[in-house]
Amino acid sequence: MAILVIAEHNNAVLAAATLNTVAAAKAIGGDIHVLVAGAGCGAIGEAAAKIEGVSKVLVADDAAYGHQLPENVAPLIAGLAKDYSHVLAAATTNGKNFMPRVAAQLDVDQLSEIIAVESADTFKRPIYAGNAIATVQSSAPIKVITVRATGFDPVNAEGGSASVEQVSGSGDAGVSSFVGEELAKSDRPELTAAKIVVSGGRGMQNGENFKHLYSLADKLGAAVGASRAAVDAGFVPNDMQVGQTGKIVAPQLYIAVGISGAIQHLAGMKDSKVIVAINKDEEAPIFQVADYGLVGDLFEILPALEELV
């Protein structure tokens, strides 16, 4: 029984979420192989070979896999999957995009965003925006799974010495093409990997006021997140959104500023180790999950907080 893990990368660096996914594979048990599909992704293949616990790396280097278009990548993965008991990918927008397509090609159900491995066929996953945790058992011959990175501690990126093998698939399916990409630039740590996250909501009032959060975050070495209200109001770009429909984070410290705490937002951050809420409304639901709450005007609190930390 071997497990195939699909590497998450952008053709330049191997994403940290791959390490969490390998950790989930390790918890299932078995030989772990990693597939790197991309265009000019040889260096990613070498990085993947160094991951602790990985025994083989498959590299599919083809222009058709450059932006991991699901129409092209899914047939490649489905073709390889027949030799494996489990196929795992991180529950990133990429993994969520191609994995169900792989599952349907293999005619098996998929398990989305598992947070724990009970045994090789039994897993835990959150449903209803994290308000319930389901334990599910799969009898599918090939288990196609996406892994919520925050549910697993990453394995070491170094220490492995896997063999690297070139593989090829059917290439371009010819039904879709990549046009362009617009990536938000940020010098701060990545939201899903940060130890500390400072998030702002509608209470920030405008995008300009987010500078208070940025300067606090820079002092703490934190990433900056936002609630859906702040994104919809145009204060910040949507890739900063934390919640059921945005990113799921579980940092050591989560500071929610001017966020009421709707269940959709809590779904994205309630596994944080320590939650701090700063809100002027003492009835705000966020205080029900906060370890430390401070009621008051955020525009007075934030500068004072920045000075003291």
Binding site: L111, N131, I133, S138, A140, I301
Partner: peptide, 27 residues
Amino acid sequence: STVKTLKVEAPAARSAGIKVKSVAELV
């Protein structure tokens, strides 16, 4: 279906937090 739900549980509840009085106390 090849997937069977064995059980559904409430997520682990967070223990109740406290409200602090000042920024200094929070830090």
